[in-house]
Amino acid sequence: MKNVLLPVFYLPPISWFSVFLDAENEVVLEQFESFPKQTYRSRTNIYGANGKLSLIIPINHNGKREIKDIEISYIENWRKIHWKSIKTAYQSSPYFEYYEDKFIKLFDLKEKYLFDFNEKGLEILQQILKTEKAYSLNEEYIKNPLELNFREKFSTKIPSEFEMEEYYQTFSDKLGFLKDLSILDLICNKGPETLTYIKNIKQSY
């Protein structure tokens, strides 16, 4: 078994799930790190009609820095916007209709904190995937943790290092394959084959 330290993401990319669900990994989720901007902690990438589309959760800038204390802003109705974007992107995919009632539960939530929202999202995704991966939360921030550290492994700015096979995506005929989008993309397009696909990803660690 390997101990791994994972950040908590909003509808995480496929590569994150390949680490999270690896049977060899004992997962600890990071709740004390200083919140880094422009990362998957507050954004997710889906496949829109014009290519990659980033959905970003707005944050309350209240001076707090630890990820567990970061508050979500509800000044704009981003939940409605995000859900509409997801529905528009995937309603013609093979499996969206099958999972729609479970997906929408996430956007009925109104959590105060980003960490809690993301963790509830993970719970819903595990229900969809029919997985029961156990994990723990860390108890303090450690700069150089004993666990395999994935806090900076998943970048929104550079291509994913994880090797994954191409699969059919809703707009791939027009725009080509987009690698390592949100797990939603894989679930909507591969359905029950999602877990098999994840297990076959070549991990870069």
Rank of each mutant, 00 (worst) to 15 (best):
L5M: 04
L6G: 05
P13A: 08
S15D: 10
W16I: 05
V19N: 01
L21F: 13
V27F: 00
V28R: 08
L29G: 08
E33A: 05
P36Q: 14
P36W: 00
K37S: 14
S42W: 04
R43P: 07
R43T: 11
R43V: 03
T44W: 09
Y47D: 07
N50A: 10
I59M: 04
H61W: 01
H61P: 00
H61M: 08
K64Y: 11
E66F: 11
I67F: 15
D69M: 00
D69K: 01
D69V: 10
D69E: 13
E71L: 11
E71Y: 06
I72D: 01
I72E: 08
S73P: 02
E76Y: 01
N77P: 08
R79D: 00
I81R: 13
I86R: 01
K87C: 05
S92E: 04
Y95E: 10
F96H: 00
Y98M: 10
D101N: 13
K105R: 14
K112G: 08
L114E: 03
G121E: 12
G121L: 09
E123L: 02
Q126V: 08
Q126M: 12
T131W: 06
E132I: 09
Y135D: 09
E140F: 03
E140R: 06
I142D: 09
N144M: 11
L148P: 04
T156H: 03
P159H: 01
E161D: 13
F162A: 12
L175M: 11
F177N: 02
F177T: 02
L178E: 05
D180Q: 02
L184D: 12
K190S: 13
K190F: 02
E193H: 08
K199E: 15
I201M: 08
K202L: 15
Q203P: 03
Y205R: 06
